[in-house]
Amino acid sequence: MSMKGKRERYLPLFFVLPTVIIILIISIFPLIYSFWLSLCEWEIGIGADRVFVGLRNYARLLTDSRFLNSLMNTGRVLFFGVGAQFALGLGVALLLNRSFRGKNLVSTLFLLPMMVSPVVVGCIWRIIYHYRYGPLNYMLNMAGLSSVNWLGSTDMAIYSIILADIWEWTPFMMIVLLAGLQAIPDELYEAARVDGANRWQIFTYMLVPLLRPVMIIVILIRIMDTFKIFDLVFLITFGGPGQASETVSFYNYLTGFRHFSMGYASSMAYFQLAIIVIIANIFLRVWRRREEA
């Protein structure tokens, strides 16, 4: 009995151990290693040795106009991209939050864009955005509008990326928000209706507060992923024209794996991580406060 009791006591630990070990070995190691690199200058392009330079890479970040530009672009994707995904996703979720025949089928159809690989999404949109032969400009022309220079204009390129991103990730927002909506018991709707609330009041006074934790989490997940947006930029514009559609993670890739300034690239990754952690903390604080209240 005592043997068994002992085994039982350590069982939970055994459950967690594999995960922790894997994460420690191949996730924490890169984390520490690349932090060390971020304090070094390491131009592996010319086979130079690693030189410890302290915080110089971080100082360089703040004066690198191309980095600041990429930060701005990421901000645009966050603001317009995630914003539109949220609004659209919530809209679709509200439309789907009712029972009708074929509802599961329709919801699944809505999910297809996020199921398709971003590489495929990039290829698809590159054809769609083609200035002379793309179906999008063709439809605009049919509607009597003039062609839009989707990929060849420095003002437009980043928004073309954003549109493709919205297309790809709205379904994610939609499905999670829909799940949240369906978790709300019918009785609450009934009660609200009995109290004489109209639809708008139900939405603002009941649904939004109840959905708040879900909203916060889903937006947070999208923000974290948006900082990593890479495949779409890589395939649709490769950051161009010029630097017009470079996002932080794309510029980060360029510095690390094209210019091979490994130290600088690592510092950029850490800077990015710091921003994400700050944002995540703000979100979670808001979320916890809600929960406690």
Binding site: G45, L254, R258
Partner: peptide, 18 residues
């Protein structure tokens, strides 16, 4: 470092062209 030299030149030329 040619890649980086020409890459930055390309970026600035684009800035001028637009």
């Amino acid at each position: 470092g040619t890649v980086e030299y020409l890459d930055t030149l390309g970026v600035e030329l684009t800035n001028a062209i637009v």
